[in-house]
């Protein structure tokens, strides 16, 4: 099902990202937000991108959508979607693909919807821009149908209401309807449930899973919460300091993770499904600077297993070490990583 292959060659995947780099000039220096990212995503698959603020996960999604065009950001590498390099497309060619082939769901549905227009107006617009010839009545019927499919009760009435008249959960449902109205082949959901309450989050995640089965779109779900991707993602990419540090199937990430940062993430969150620990185990220190990132491995400043003398963690930039389709960007040799995980990280219940 899932091959997470960070190779340099071409692939027949739906989305194929190669050595993506995104930099922004700022007063303090050049921010290297994404610093060499490579991954593939097949049709109908779900990729979870997990990372903390500043890891480059949201910037990646915006680069795929081409939202950096016209800004001072510089995007390098290649993003092939359906065989076309999105970075090389003319603005107009890319615009036509936005919303039609690749759609996006944002974190905060209240600010992502225009406050002055009705929900229906905004969804209808998203459809009409790609279906210019459709009749007004047909579009409206289609949008009402979409609203119904995302579980908005009474869509005939709701379509003419404004975003502020919707609850948070309903607004996010409307955003999902807007993203899916053109049946895109790729949906990027950027922290789709972070702004929502936990009970609403559960509803939205269930909805996304159901809808994906219907429309067979590939999904990239970006989140800081490993719990959110546990249920949804086929494969997971963990990002740190603008790079992917570990990739793999959901099972690999959760049951045999090999990167010390992934360990840190899994250990630092308190879990209600396990014995309560007397003390949380945080990752020490702070996220790395994106302007002057640490030398060597970006994580070495916070890594409990760093070994400068023998492994050169503070000097050598690690490349992906791929064993069993499981790429890990770490200088610790694979057998030792596995040993550390088995003896120190794994808990009885996993």
């Amino acid at each position: 099902m899932s091959t997470w292959v960070p190779t340099e060659g071409t692939s027949d995947a739906l989305l194929s990202v190669r050595d993506l780099k995104v930099t922004f000039p700022t007063e303090d220096g050049l921010v290297k937000a994404v610093n060499g990212l490579t991954f593939d995503l097949n049709a109908g698959e779900t990729l979870g991108i997990v990372g903390e603020s500043g890891s480059g996960k949201s910037v990646t999604s915006q680069a795929i959508m081409g939202l950096h065009r016209g800004t001072r950001a510089k995007v390098e590498g290649s993003i092939d979607f359906d065989g076309k390099n999105l970075l090389k497309l003319e603005d107009e060619e890319l615009r036509v693909m936005r919303g039609r082939d690749i759609a996006m769901i944002f974190q905060d549905p209240l600010s992502a919807l225009h406050p002055y227009y009705t929900v229906g107006n905004q969804i209808i617009e998203a459809y009409k821009v790609h279906h210019g010839s459709a009749s007004k009545a047909a579009v409206r019927a289609h949008v009402i149908d979409m609203l119904e499919r995302v579980g908005i009760p009474n869509p005939q009435k709701r379509i003419d209401q404004y975003p502020h008249e919707f609850s948070g959960g309903m607004r996010q449902r409307a955003m999902i309807a807007m993203a899916l109205v053109n049946s895109p082949r790729l949906v990027i959901a950027d922290e789709p449930t972070t702004a929502l309450d936990v009970t609403v989050q559960a509803q939205i995640l269930d909805l996304l899973i159901d809808l994906q089965k219907d429309i067979n779109a590939a999904i990239i779900i970006i989140t800081h919460d490993l719990g959110v991707v546990a249920e949804m993602a086929d494969k997971i990419m963990v990002m740190y300091g603008g790079k992917a540090v570990e990739g793999g199937t959901a099972d690999q990430t959760f049951y045999s993770p090999e990167h010390p940062y992934t360990w840190g993430l899994l250990q630092s969150m308190p879990r209600i499904d396990r014995e309560r620990l007397d003390r949380l185990r945080p990752i020490p220190g702070n996220p790395p600077s994106l302007i002057s990132p640490p030398s060597g491995c970006a994580f070495h400043t916070r890594c409990a297993y760093r070994d400068d003398e023998n492994l050169g963690c503070s000097t050598i930039v690690p490349e992906f070490d791929v064993q069993d389709w499981h790429p890990v960007r770490c200088l610790i040799p694979a057998p030792k990583r596995k040993a550390i995980f088995d003896t120190e990280i794994r808990t009885p219940s996993s």
Binding site: M65, L67, R95, V96, M97, R98, G99, R100, A103, M104, F106, D108, S111, A112, L113, H114, P115, Y116, Y117, Q122, E125, A126, V129, H130, M175, M178
Partner: peptide, 23 residues
């Protein structure tokens, strides 16, 4: 954020300016 949404929908820059930005 709602301008980013407008862009992500694939709207033309004219429509983004006149309908979404200026309003």
């Amino acid at each position: 954020d709602y301008l980013r949404t407008a862009q992500a929908k694939g709207l033309t820059s004219g429509r983004i300016l006149f309908k979404h930005t200026l309003r």
